[in-house]
């Protein structure tokens, strides 16, 4: 364990839960040092500010999102972390009155220049509430794979018989999300019959299906029980080799367990950014220290 017990105590004292026996994810993850996987920057945020109407919720954030590591956005409610996350796939545009300044690039290309549907296939997202569509498990994943609009009538007819074409990709996505073994026999069952944790993994499978380069997770475990949370954390750590992952979390222990880098936000500003070890063990800024120590939140 490269992280000494006293390093955890800071955190344990702060959030009031013992970290001495971390769930599976935390323990196994620390063995993989970032140098083992090739780290490559996929997204870059340059002086990004975001506003709803005339209220600024994110101010002047500069950050990099890299494949091969997990970036956690932490901070109190209303610190702008979810808004920042949603701006990465332009989901902020769904909200009326939202505006943005600064540049966000994906593999060097401004995300405004990309077709929004294409962008969202490359920068996928999982939400706080597990939200499978009211269709079968198979269809939930297949939906993400189908390119609508380019098909026309012939494509539509093909879709009727397309199951065998899509099946390998659907199964692969379910495997990557660690769900396939549990649902292999129930692919045609309604997705809403799955447990909460399974539903969330189905949402992750759905998000992975289109082969995104970046996966955004907005508090993906906040509605789940501890065992499902541990399963998903393990999954996140395993996935970072193939996708760049950004996770918003309220749960400091979770950030500590899964993240390689941590960005601490407060009232819309990026207060501190650094490696997980640095931010949790030796926070530079007093506000970070207070937040991690539990002074506010």
């Amino acid at each position: 364990m490269e992280r000494p017990a006293n390093g955890r105590r800071v955190l344990a004292g702060g959030v009031g839960a013992p970290l001495a026996s971390p769930p599976v994810a935390g323990a196994s993850r620390r063995r993989v040092s970032p140098s083992l996987t090739e780290v490559k920057e996929r997204m870059r945020l340059e002086s990004v500010s975001l506003a709803y109407g005339d209220r600024w919720v994110v101010r002047d954030v500069t950050l990099g999102v890299r494949r091969g590591e997990v970036l956690a956005l932490i901070g109190a409610s209303g610190s702008g972390k979810t808004t920042l996350l949603r701006s990465l796939n332009r989901l902020t545009e769904v909200t009326a009155g939202a505006s943005r300044a600064g540049a966000i690039t994906l593999d060097g290309e401004e995300i405004e220049r990309l077709e929004v549907t294409a962008l969202r296939r490359r920068v996928s997202m999982v939400f706080q509430q597990p939200n499978p569509f009211p269709m079968s498990v198979f269809e939930n994943v297949a939906y993400a794979l189908r390119e609508e609009g380019r098909e026309g009538l012939r494509g539509w007819r093909r879709r009727m018989g397309a199951r065998h074409e899509l099946e390998p990709a659907v199964i692969d996505a379910l495997r990557r999300a660690g769900l396939y073994e549990e649902v292999a026999d129930d692919l045609d069952h309604p997705a809403l019959r799955l447990s909460g944790g399974q539903q969330q993994r189905l949402c992750i499978a759905r998000a992975l299906a289109a082969g995104p380069e970046v996966l955004l997770l907005d508090e993906p475990c906040s509605a789940l029980d501890p065992i499902s949370t541990a399963t998903i954390e393990e999954l996140i750590v395993g996935l970072r080799e193939s996708v760049a992952i950004v996770i918003v979390t309220h749960n400091l222990q979770q950030a500590f367990r899964v993240a390689d880098h941590v960005a601490f936000m407060h009232l819309g500003e990026l207060v501190e950014y650094g490696s997980s070890e640095q931010v949790f063990d030796h926070p530079r800024m007093p506000r970070t220290r207070d937040y991690i120590g539990g002074a506010f939140g």
Binding site: L91, R120, R121, S124, M125, N131, F133, Y143, R206, A210
Partner: peptide
């Protein structure tokens, strides 16, 4: 969020 889940898949 169900609508957004669909938008987030590029739909």
């Amino acid at each position: 969020h169900l609508r957004e889940a669909s938008y987030a898949l590029g739909k």
